[in-house]
Write a protein that binds this DNA or RNA. Structure first.
Lengths: 230, 230
DNA sequence: TCTTGTGAAGTACTTCACAGCC
DNA sequence: GGCTGTGAAGTACTTCACAAGA
């Protein structure tokens, strides 16, 4: 990707306007800041400095200032950031305004846990539908959601549902993803350890639990000297 | 971090030995390659090319070759990589030899799902203990594991258990982490949305489910033009 | 004096391109 | 002819350092 605009720079600067591509790493951190602000806003503070926020979420202050610099002038020099205003701005950037509807596919052990997961609410997410292919489960109610047959994914069309969570065994992951995309879903959070392929217009984020765990022994087991190579 | 050794380069090259720091991103991908190899080794193939492996896991062939180049000469030009040998080598680098014991703290919805998660076995992980602070749960058996009181985390000392998974509410996360570290745990996979602080010698990997989901609307909602700034 | 915002410098990782081996 | 291994080039992100605002 190209930051572009190099031969238009002068024009843009003249009218005091510049264009940025937001680094993906910044987008990844914004939800973390957002949650920190939500948690800290009930505490009577009005402002927060980049240092205080940084300590809370575990990054460096200059990282936070740099991240915010991609958007606009959020803060007040000598004071910090107004918590309410900052929260609103980050929410706006992330499009976390109002309620975001999400559907879940796969109501096994992990899927059931996700249905009950309390962390989604803070961001305004709500799981509004759940699907499975197990006849035993279809029709049952879990956390106020009636589990439907995966065949009914197509009925999501035109209901304004853009996000889905996939928590099915890996054999089913690709076909479920395709059904979701066909039904108009534009963003997928995939928990199955399978390399799902989706069209470019669809954003896919993978969480691969076992793979994350499998990094640990490399770092923890002693004898990790710099690799010798001959 | 410094790649170092610049003034020793000649010496090292002369004796055909070089030292590398393995990029964290490479370590993150190795478990993915490892699983792909395990899945493909039952299929009668003996060798696999960087292109075939790349297509399977969803990266570029040159990325795979570069990743492997940090370790040694794995492949045979014109042929590819011997699957059995490669699997063994990656397993060795990641220290995924034999059975890796893991303990789980927090047997709520998510913790229970992790206890039953089938994906750990492929890497040789086994959850050998589970802890919770809920009197209702303590003493019950789940997936052949008797749930113990969190107070008993200290009893893990000297049992050769290096890895732990934290799936407790955020208020409890820091204290649980400290108990685990005190009991000799060296690597933690943390599912609670809290910035746990651990000593440098302990490796911490965070999986923050809601935060991952919260990135999606930014990418999926239309109207994401390059940010305007004045 | 304290804290922001940001060019510039530094670092880490990815991609290229091709020599060398099978 | 096909595929690996790897310096070199390119890109993306982080960290620094400091001018300017409150």
């Amino acid at each position: 990707m190209n930051s572009g605009f190099s031969n238009c720079d002068y024009e843009y600067k003249k009218i005091k306007m510049r264009y940025h591509k937001i680094p993906d790493e910044t987008v990844r951190r914004l939800p973390v800041y957002f949650r920190a602000l939500r948690l800290s806003s009930g505490q009577g503070w009005e402002s927060i400095s980049s240092k205080a926020l940084a300590d809370f979420v575990g990054v460096h202050p200059w990282q936070i200032r740099k991240d915010f610099s991609y958007f606009g002038d959020f803060g007040i020099p000598g004071v910090g950031y107004n918590i309410a205003k900052l929260k609103k701005q980050i929410g706006g950037i992330l499009k976390l305004t109002g309620e975001n509807k999400v559907v879940l596919v796969g109501v096994g052990n992990l899927g059931s846990a996700l249905l009950a997961y309390p962390g989604f609410g803070l961001y305004g997410f709500k799981i509004v539908e759940a699907f499975d292919n197990d006849r035993e489960k279809i029709g049952r109610k879990l956390n106020d959601i009636v589990i439907k047959d995966v065949c009914e994914i197509a009925t999501l069309r035109n209901r304004g549902i853009q996000l889905a969570i996939i928590a099915v065994p890996l054999e089913a992951a690709q076909s479920v993803a395709e059904a979701l995309v066909a039904a108009g879903v534009k963003g997928i959070l995939n928990f199955s350890p399978y390399n799902i392929v989706v069209p470019n217009k669809v954003k896919l984020i993978n969480i691969d639990i076992a793979t994350e765990l499998a990094q640990l022994p490399y770092y923890t087991q002693s004898g990790r000297v710099e690799t010798q190579k001959q």
